[in-house]
């Protein structure tokens, strides 16, 4: 079976800034694939190229076997897209927004009306069909946009930061929708996010993307396993000495980050008292100790040496500098 999406050495440059740097990956049919990374990492740019909104500088990409540059219209027919920023007409009703979309994709009237009703029921907006979108909450708008993206029966659905700016409850709700959707309709879903939890919970496979490059690509479980067991985090002002006293064969690896020591090891529960004793013997102050199972945040940290939030600040700086340069 042809992969839903094939990306080969895809690159996008804006002047000197390399937004997407020579990335390659494949997405299988029916998969939920996540692009995880900080803002400004190149996720949305990748999505814009895959959805034919922007031309790649070099490299190729195909969606359902169709080239995004040479076969624009075929790609557009095959994909549904929910943009990061809202793209509804607020002056129109929910039903009219759907209808407009259906007409743009040339769905015959009878079928159009039938699909609109069933999709609005799916996202629980059927009773608001005749209401103007202006009166909708953020979560309702997102749901409407997802319904609209599905109207022309795309085989690949792009979701760009689908839960950005939504409250936790709505977010949970939406995650459920997306998971059900992929199961029931066998749609390939590619989503971008900078929420670790979202990627972990929804995605079959994740590509971690930073500064335009893919730095890791695997299932969430494998990514977390790859880190090497559990993590004990010790907060101490004296982390250099503390690192020195801890050299045991059962310690997989030690990383220091800000004023934290992060110790990677198997069966952390058995060894924690040992570790604390050793550190105490050297009269090193310990502010706090915690044990946790690895999360994607740890994966990101161990690959980039930074947390995703720290990286985001850098990304924004870079964008700002780039914008300024562009204006001059």
């Amino acid at each position: 079976m042809t992969p839903a999406i094939q990306v080969h050495e895809l690159t996008k440059k804006y002047g000197n800034l390399v937004a997407v740097d020579n990335i390659s990956f494949e997405i299988k049919q029916g998969e939920i694939f996540g692009l995880l990374g900080p803002n400004g990492a190149g996720k949305t740019t990748t999505l814009s190229m895959l959805s034919t909104m922007q031309k790649p500088t070099s490299g190729t990409a195909t969606v359902q076997g169709k080239d995004v540059e040479k076969n624009e219209d075929e790609v557009r027919k095959a994909i549904g897209i929910v943009f990061q920023d809202q793209s509804l007409d607020e002056e129109l009703t929910a039903g009219e927004n759907m209808d407009f979309h259906g007409r743009l994709y040339r769905i015959p009237p009878d079928e159009r009306n039938q699909r609109i009703d069933s999709l609005l029921r799916l996202v629980e907006l059927y009773d608001r069909k005749k209401d103007i979108v202006k009166t909708f909450s953020g979560g309702m708008r997102r749901r409407l946009e997802i319904a609209r993206g599905l109207l022309h029966h795309p085989s690949v659905l792009f979701l760009d930061e689908p839960t950005l700016g939504l409250d936790p409850q709505t977010r949970n709700h939406l995650w459920q929708y997306i998971a059900d959707l992929s199961k029931e309709k066998h749609i390939t879903i590619i989503l971008t996010t900078h929420y670790m939890e979202e990627a972990d919970r929804l995605c079959d496979r994740i590509a971690i993307i930073d500064h335009g490059s893919i730095i890791a690509l695997d299932t969430p479980q494998n990514l977390k396993n790859g880190i090497g067991g559990d993590i004990i985090t010790i907060q101490t002002p004296d982390f250099n000495t503390a690192t020195e006293v801890l050299s045991e064969p059962w310690i997989h690896r030690i990383e220091t980050h800000n004023d934290e020591i992060r110790i990677f090891l198997m069966n952390a529960e058995q060894h924690i008292s040992d570790i604390i004793t050793r550190v105490n013997q050297q009269n090193i102050t310990i502010h706090s100790v915690s044990i946790h199972k690895p999360t994607l945040e740890d994966v990101f940290l161990s690959f980039t040496g930074k947390t995703i939030r720290e990286q985001e600040i850098n990304g924004k700086e870079m964008m700002r500098m780039h914008m300024r340069r562009g204006k001059r």
Partner: peptide
């Protein structure tokens, strides 16, 4: 500005 143009531009038209 309100994003609606994207919806039309990404359609196969």
């Amino acid at each position: 500005q309100f994003g609606f143009l994207k919806e039309t531009l990404v359609a196969p038209v």
